[in-house]
Each structure stands twice: as structure tokens, then as C-alpha cells.
């Protein structure tokens, strides 16, 4: 199993590193926006404000990376019959998904690391924030795969490649818009359950939340675990046939 995964992952790394254009959406855009936002606002930010700024950017990098580099890649593979062919070679659809997810997790982590260095240069944060950044970065090794499973329901939708870009952009914007929560505790729990971006923010907020810590911990743990289980089933059962084939 792991040998198969390793062999397939080597191939996926080739593809991941070949398409450098994706870095523009997942790293360059947020980095430029971060610099713009830094110079357009007060430089005298509290540690809490810095944390909130950072987790918004991290949430964007993770979700856009997963949508563009994992989910879109899987749908494109299904539509050009690559998925069918590689599934017959490997014997399991999930291996193709994991082989895609593993290198992309590392790519997204590299992007976040570069972003964090840029952020550290501009914010000149104290040790407490640097520790927070490092802890969140380590936690991303769990968060990124969970987000991939959160969004795996998209693999069950018969979506054409022509409409994929528009759909993913809309989904990303909506997810980010909803990620900062509301004043309603119940609605916030619901958002963590249905929105991957709210889940990401929820996990990071465990490091500094003053209230509802236990509720948030239970919600993100249960929701994350449920999505990993359900996501695996969705991937294992996803259609190998292109939507446009007969």
C-alpha cells in the first residue's frame, strides 16, 4: 500500500511542480494583498489583531490550494480519463487521491512558510506570535488533509471542466466570507460543520480563544473526524467516468 502510494506520489510531485502558475493564486496574490493591507492600515497592531489577520490568510491559502490543486485536479483527471487509467494501474481510487494530496500538502505548507516569513518581516512580531505561527504551521499537516476531505463532496457532483473554475472561485469566496462567524453560538457551530474555512479558523482559534473553548474543540474534532470518514467513502466510490462520456 505505502510502496504503491510512494510510487504514485513521485509522479504527482512532477505535476505539482510543473504548474507554477498555481503559486500565483495561492501565494503571490495573498502575499501582495497582505503587503497592501499592511501599508494601508495602522502598523501598531495588538497580538490578537495580528493573529486574526494571519489566520484569514492561512485559511485562504489552504482552501484555495486544496480546491485548485487537489479537488480540481481529481475532477480534471476524471474528465480526461486519467483517473480511470491510473485507478486500473493502482487498483484503488483512494491511492490516486492520497498520491495527489500528499505532495500538495507539502506544497501548501511551503507556501504558508514563505508567507509567514514575509509576514514576520513586516509585522516584526514578538516571540508569542512567532510561537503561535509555528504551532499553527505544524497543525496544518493535519488541517490540510481534513480540509481536502471537507471538500471531497465536490467529487460526487457531475461537474464539467468548463464550469469548474467559476464554481471553485464562487465556493472559495463564499467559504471565506462565512469563515469569521457570527454572534450566534449555534450558527458558529453549524458553520464549522459545513464550511471548511470556518473549520480552519475554528482550529487556529483554539490557541487564543477566550470563550467557548471546549465547544469549539469538540465541534472541530467531531466534524473533522466525520469528514475524514465520509470523505474516504466518497473518494472510494467516485465515478471513474467523465461527465461528458456516454
Amino acid at each position: 500500500m505505502f510502496k504503491k502510494l510512494s510510487a504514485l506520489s513521485k509522479f504527482e510531485v512532477n505535476i505539482a511542480l510543473d504548474d507554477k502558475g498555481l503559486f500565483i493564486y495561492t501565494l503571490v496574490f495573498p502575499a501582495l494583498y497582505f503587503i497592501y493591507a499592511f501599508f494601508s492600515s495602522s502598523h501598531d497592531l495588538t497580538n490578537l489583531a495580528i493573529r486574526y489577520h494571519l489566520l484569514g490568510f492561512w485559511s485562504y491559502i489552504i482552501l484555495s490550494g486544496i480546491l485548485n490543486q487537489v479537488i480540481t485536479a481529481m475532477i480534471s483527471m476524471r474528465e480526461n480519463n486519467f483517473l480511470k487509467m491510473f485507478t486500473f494501474i493502482s487498483g484503488d481510487r483512494r491511492l490516486i487521491f492520497y498520491a495527489n494530496l500528499i505532495p500538495q500538502t507539502l506544497v501548501i505548507q511551503a507556501e504558508i512558510l514563505i508567507f509567514d516569513i514575509i509576514a514576520a518581516v513586516f509585522y516584526r512580531p514578538d516571540l508569542e506570535i512567532l510561537e503561535f505561527m509555528f504551532a499553527c504551521w505544524l497543525l496544518n499537516f493535519i488541517i490540510i488533509p481534513v480540509v481536502a476531505f471537507y471538500t471531497s463532496f465536490l467529487l460526487a457532483i457531475p461537474m464539467r471542466t468548463q464550469t469548474l473554475g467559476v464554481f471553485m472561485t464562487g465556493y472559495l469566496l463564499l467559504a471565506l466570507l462565512l469563515s469569521y462567524g457570527t454572534t450566534s453560538k449555534l450558527l458558529n457551530i453549524l458553520l464549522v460543520i459545513i464550511n471548511p474555512s470556518s473549520f480552519v479558523v475554528g482550529v487556529y482559534s483554539l490557541f487564543f480563544a477566550q470563550t467557548d473553548l471546549m465547544t469549539t474543540l469538540i465541534t472541530v474534532s467531531v466534524a473533522g473526524l466525520a469528514y475524514v470518514i465520509v470523505g474516504n467513502v466518497i473518494v472510494a466510490k467516485m465515478s471513474l467516468n467523465s461527465v461528458i462520456s456516454r
Partner: peptide, 11 residues
């Protein structure tokens, strides 16, 4: 399924 190899046309 796991005992089948399927070469797909044009892929």
C-alpha cells in the same frame, strides 16, 4: 475490479 487491467483508448 482489482483483477482487471484496462487500457483505455486515447488516454
Amino acid at each position: 475490479f482489482k483483477q482487471i487491467a484496462y487500457q483505455i483508448q486515447g488516454v
